[in-house]
Amino acid sequence: MSAPLLACDNVGRRFGGFVALEGVTTAFAANKVTAVIGPNGAGKSTFFNVLSGVIAPTSGTVRFRGRDLAGTPQHRFAHLGISRSYQITNIFPELTAHENVRVAAQAFRSRYDILTRRARLTELDERAATALEAVGLAARGGATAKFLAHGEQRALEIAIALVADPALLLLDEPTAGMGPEETRGMVALIERLARERTILLVEHKMKMILGLSDRILVLHHGRLIADGTPAEIQADAEVRRVYLGQNDGYA
């Protein structure tokens, strides 16, 4: 078997006396979609924050492509190949969609490159255009971000993450606030993106998760209580007890 893209070994995170994560050991293969689910307070956001470098684990190790990420500053995670979106849309509302993505592309150039004329930095515009095309916003590049529909803003945030060409993309509730049509569009986008990268997502729409994911992790009180295929998770009595409910039909 090939080495996993990302591996967590006994990962824990405490905030004073509160244990948000405890003993999480798991690994993720390339080009798979994994959903992380659990009731409120299960540790999902903490887990994502650890994996994306927002916070460091207080115990255990996280390895990406075999490299221990301990001590790596958050801004370096994107350079290593890990990008994420957030539950609350995080864009520059007064810039156009193209400008939002171009700013992200420019962050990958040396901050001390002051001698190159802006007009010569055409590769940045090309990278931005490619990312917008990947999320279905090629025709909306000139639109001011604040005037985009909610689903388009969520797609724009993913385009900003894609400009780093990440091997691992973390999506925090990518369909939050979306209606059925926008949700279907986001699912189709995630399916396309998963052909070339590993995707981890936190999401609450169980029907969507069961149809989209290759694998599901279930957290409860900061511990990993189940890890399996959608069918295995649906059949797991403990998961049904703590999260899915006995009679919810997984709607």
Results as ranks from 00 to 15, higher is better:
residue 11 V to I: 11
residue 250 Y to E: 11
residue 103 V to F: 09
residue 204 H to G: 00
residue 126 E to N: 05
residue 178 M to K: 03
residue 243 Y to P: 00
residue 68 D to P: 08
residue 113 D to W: 15
residue 147 F to H: 07
residue 20 A to Q: 15
residue 121 L to P: 12
residue 38 G to M: 12
residue 74 Q to V: 13
residue 31 N to K: 05
residue 237 A to Q: 15
residue 90 N to S: 07
residue 132 L to Y: 06
residue 194 A to P: 02
residue 208 M to D: 05
residue 8 C to N: 07
residue 207 K to H: 07
residue 92 F to Q: 00
residue 112 Y to E: 13
residue 225 I to M: 07
residue 62 V to Y: 15
residue 107 A to T: 14
residue 39 P to V: 09
residue 145 A to P: 00
residue 113 D to H: 13
residue 93 P to Y: 08
residue 118 R to F: 14
residue 113 D to I: 10
residue 240 R to N: 14
residue 184 R to K: 02
residue 212 L to E: 09
residue 215 R to Y: 09
residue 93 P to W: 10
residue 246 Q to D: 15
residue 124 L to H: 13
residue 167 A to H: 09
residue 111 R to N: 10
residue 136 G to Y: 03
residue 199 I to T: 03
residue 42 A to T: 11
residue 8 C to T: 05
residue 159 A to F: 06
residue 176 A to L: 02
residue 184 R to S: 08
residue 197 R to C: 03
residue 119 A to R: 11
residue 12 G to V: 08
residue 137 L to T: 03
residue 151 G to E: 01
residue 79 H to N: 14
residue 171 L to H: 06
residue 42 A to C: 08
residue 84 R to I: 08
residue 213 S to M: 06
residue 31 N to S: 03
residue 149 A to N: 05
residue 60 G to C: 09
residue 103 V to Q: 06
residue 185 G to D: 11
residue 114 I to F: 14
residue 65 R to V: 05
residue 70 A to E: 14
residue 120 R to P: 04
residue 111 R to Y: 14
residue 100 N to H: 09
residue 119 A to I: 04
residue 18 F to M: 13
residue 128 A to L: 02
residue 149 A to L: 04
residue 9 D to V: 00
residue 159 A to T: 03
residue 147 F to S: 00
residue 177 G to Q: 04
residue 200 L to A: 01
residue 42 A to S: 11
residue 86 Y to F: 15
residue 52 S to G: 04
residue 85 S to W: 13
residue 72 T to Q: 15
residue 15 F to N: 15
residue 30 A to R: 13
residue 67 R to V: 14
residue 32 K to E: 11
residue 24 V to D: 14
residue 40 N to H: 12
residue 37 I to A: 04
residue 161 A to P: 01
residue 224 L to T: 07
residue 50 V to W: 12
residue 166 P to D: 06
residue 213 S to K: 03
residue 138 A to L: 00
residue 227 D to P: 10
residue 174 P to N: 10
residue 22 E to K: 10
residue 220 H to W: 09
residue 140 R to Y: 02
residue 173 E to W: 12
residue 167 A to E: 12
residue 250 Y to P: 04
residue 221 H to G: 09
residue 165 D to I: 00
residue 120 R to F: 13
residue 19 V to L: 15
residue 231 A to P: 03
residue 195 R to T: 01
residue 226 A to V: 12
residue 65 R to E: 14
residue 189 L to I: 03
residue 102 R to K: 05
residue 237 A to H: 14
residue 213 S to W: 15
residue 171 L to E: 14
residue 6 L to W: 09
